[in-house]
Amino acid sequence: MSEIDLLRESVRRFAREVVGPTREALNHFPERPLPAGIVSGLGELGLFDAEIEPGLVSAALEELAKVAAAPAALVLTHAVARALVREAGGGRSAALGGLNGHGIFACPIYSELDLTDGAPSLRRIGAEIELEGTAQLVVGAPLAKVLVLPVRDAAGWALVGLETSEPGVVLGEPLLTLGMRGCPTADVSFQQRRFPADRVLATSPEVVRRVARRFRGAAVAISAGILASSVQAATEYAQERYQGGGAIIEHQEVRAILGRMLEDLAVCQDSRELLERDTVPEWRALAAFLRAKERAAHATSDGVQLLGGNGYMEDYGQERAMRDAKQAQFLFGRTDVARQALAGAVP
C-alpha cells in the first residue's frame, strides 16, 4: 500500500470509529462542548505534522469530510497557517515553527487572505509594532497556540504571527457559524497593544497566494468529501423511500436530480485529482478549484431536497452537508472575487 492509501485507510477508520459517534455534539458546538478525543486523534494520525504534504492532507481531508467536515476544516487551516509561517522564512518563523506539535495554528481561512479590509491595523513604532482592531472569524483560534493574521499596515499588507498567550491578544467567544460547526472559530482583537517588530512575518501578499495555490486541492477535497456523503445518503434514501407508487428513484425527476449530483461529484473529484498534479496551468487550476466548491454547495442543497422533510432535519446529515459545503465554498475567499483573477488568462 502506498503512503497515501495507508493514510486514507487509517483516517477512514478514525472518522468512522471516533468522529462518527460525536457528530451530533460537533454539530451543536458552541452550544455544547467540543467532544473529547477529536483533536488529539487528528494529531495522532499525524495530520498536524509540520512535514505533511498537501497531497496527503488532501486525501485525509476527503475521508474525514465524508463523515464530518468540521475536523477537516481544522486540519486544513492548521496546514495552511503552518505553511504560511514556514514560507515567510526568517528567525521568527523558525521560532513559531518550533511550536508545531504544541497546539493548533489558526488563520482566517474563509477570507481573501491577500486583502486586509476589516483586518486589524498595524503601526510601526521603533522596534515595536502596535496592533489595533479585530481579526474576524479566525479558524482554530479557540484551540490555537499560534495565530497567523493578515493585517493592514501603512504600505498595505502584512502578515503577523503571534502566540495566543502573548499579552494583548484578546480571544472572543467561539462563534456560531453557518457550517463547519465543531471547528472552533473566534474573533481575535487587539487594543492598541505593542508587540516586538519581529512578529511581522511577511509584507508581500505573494506569500499567501503561493500557499493558497498549494492547498487548493485540499480545500476541494473537503467539498468532494461532503458531496460524496450527500450523494450516498440521497441514493440510499431514494432506493428505500416509497412515494408515488414506487421507490422514488423510479421517478424520472428524482433520477435527474441524482444524476446531476453525481455529475457535480465527478467535477469535485476530477478537480481534486487535477489539483494534485504539479504541471497544471494556473488558469485551469483556479477554474477547477472554483467550479468544484461552487458545484458542491449547490448539489448538497439537492441532497436535502431528495430527502424531503427528513432532509431538513438534523438526523439525516443532509442539512449539515448543505451548510458545510456552502461554508467550504468560502475557503480562501469568495468565488466571485477569485474568478476575476481568471479573466485575462490566455490558454
Binding site: P108, Y110, S111, L137, L178, V304, R323, F330
Partner: peptide, 19 residues
C-alpha cells in the same frame, strides 16, 4: 464573503430558513 458565515450577520440564517 466570510462575514456572512457568522450567525450574528443574520444572512446565513436566511439561507437555512429559505431551504
Amino acid at each position: 464573503g466570510a462575514a456572512g458565515l457568522r450567525h450574528d450577520s443574520g444572512i446565513e440564517k436566511i439561507y437555512r430558513d429559505a431551504k
